[in-house]
Design a protein around this nucleic acid. Sequence first.
RNA 1: GCCGGAGUAGCUCAGCCGGUUAGAGCACGCGUCUCAUAAGCGCGGGGUCGGCAGUUCGAGUCUGCCCUCCGGCACCA
Length: 639
Amino acid sequence: MARTMKFFLTTAIDFVNSRPHLGTAYEKITADVIARYRRLAGFDTHFLMGNDEHSQNVFRKAIEQGKDPLAYCDEMEQVFRDVWRRLDLSFDDFIRTTDQKRHKPAVQAMAQACLDNGDVYEGSYEGFYCVGCEAFKQEKDLVEGNCPIHNTKPQWIREKNWFFRLSKYQQPLLKHYEQHPTFIQPDIRRNEILRLVEGGLEDISMSRAGQSWGISVPFDPSSVVYVWFDALINYAAAVGYGWDDALFKKWWPANLHIVGKDITRFHCVIWPAMLMSAKVELPGQVFGHGWVYFKGERMSKTMGNIVDPLDAADRFGPDPLRLYLAKEIPYGGDGDFTWERFEEKYNADLANNLGNLVNRVASMTERYQGGRVAATGGGALAAIAAHSVAAYRTAMDVHALHDGAAAAFRLVSAANNYIAETQPWALAKDPSKAGQLNGALADTAEAVRIAAVLLSPIMPASSAEILRRLGDDRAQRDRRLDADTAWRTSGEKQILNTGALWPRIEADKGVVSVSDETPKAPEAPAAPAAPAVITIDDFMKAHLKVARILEAEKVPKSQRLLKLKVDAGEAEPRTILAGIAESYEPEALIGKSVVIVANLAPRKMMGQESNGMVLAASPEGGAAIVLNAEPATPGTRVR
RNA sequence: GCCGGAGUAGCUCAGCCGGUUAGAGCACGCGUCUCAUAAGCGCGGGGUCGGCAGUUCGAGUCUGCCCUCCGGCACCA
């Protein structure tokens, strides 16, 4: 046996300003499947997860709730860990970016290394700064030199900033992509990144001045490391970078970073550049997975349609959900979750096929042979098993989880077939065919055993239970893909007949049935609070009023902008640019009365100035719906 | 607007470098066994392979144009 290979994989660390939902759970579950597969395949595996805490949003969220930021993060860690536990995730390590012992020294070490190698320089961000807004203003946004919101003259200030020389790494990155074709996967993401980098890279700010929530820049204690720079380093920090060389040497480089497709650019461009700068080896692969939609709609933290992953996991255990996510969604692409489909797959794959198979084998073995079977040669079924195992490995080696799962289920089907062909119940009636009877049952049981081993990364608890019933109650860590998927031609099994693993979901019985109409219970107590409370005075700062649309036309070259001329009861019609071109034809809007924000700072977009904003309901990923103010007359105050 | 991806049976999808009657799973219908969770097994449905035009002896499979959908970029205060 060759020396043990290591496999270090990570998932994105999560912001803790809201609890995990199906979208984040999807990433962790699929990563967990991969981690478990690698362990099964004999790799010395290290699976890292964690939380990203140095975000201003997290800081704000904590303050809103009147909590100390760190205490808030502590609480959220428990919320996250609780969800992950219920999904049966087998992470080996969990890192937080507020970790003082591991993360802080790593971040500081890498910042220092980048500085030492000449890739960090002091620059300044300068511009008009409005004290009232606590923000820099673009010159184009100023009205007669004043901040349009506060009507005061902004100051010209320079904020010291540290920049990372990303531009220097354009060619090295392109070269790396070329030499390592699978560095970015799937190919769609790779193409995107290639084009992005080919288009040129700009240096980026890697520090923020005047903030306290973050890790201080080692060579400039008055600044903190910018959150993205901070966050990426978690992968190296967790395994010793900057604080334990031996540990780092053991695990680095990471073999696989699993991230959402929205942040592949950070992981495929900035992160490798940082590592090159710090003279650290690059990870083997970044895999950008897709989204899981819910009934075709994008999952989002702010949406009400959150399917708490625990809904499915709590009702049926984590495995049916895990199987659904791994098997029904080609890994790398987007997928959809609906309760109908979940139910359908649950009944077909688990109740009817696998569960029922386990049941009938156990039942017949018990009835005909007192629960015992003696292994035989196998024959046709053994050959099918071998094919399934091979297909499964091929798929799983390249993270084609859906194909891997399908391969395992082909073996399950073959076993069901085999029973129909051999008809053990008929053989049982003829004492002279006892040998054939045993052979049929033993072969079927052996096929089930192998299928369970294949499925163990996807459905760990269920597979363990099946294997236990088949007389293998070893710990999962003691199983190995090679040895345990080989057809056994000798030995006896004592099979337990202990009832259904997955009772069918019968919609019309209404007992365990679920449906899309299942009302969402209010979020659990740990749910984050509502947005910050404001006073009536705060609200009144916004001057909302009714305006009638006089003209509407598309803004050239813009995908979502419409240019509107509206009568807001003022002397002159005003021009407003609204991002609703995807939902409305210009003509359809003329004559409509809508609600606008009248005192919003003017702003230029696509070369044209907008004076105000049209209020619209804006579903995540959906079509905007402008608020209908008819029949109120233009100029009427809205409050 | 620019750049990518996709459009194959009701649903979810396979279909390398072009080649016999276009496939799988699920759902559905019929038949059938009875060990089993009214599960299993067998059979079936005849889908213009988004549209048009080309290349070719021959095209879901190549080329061009068009339509639709989805992503990325600009833009969405």
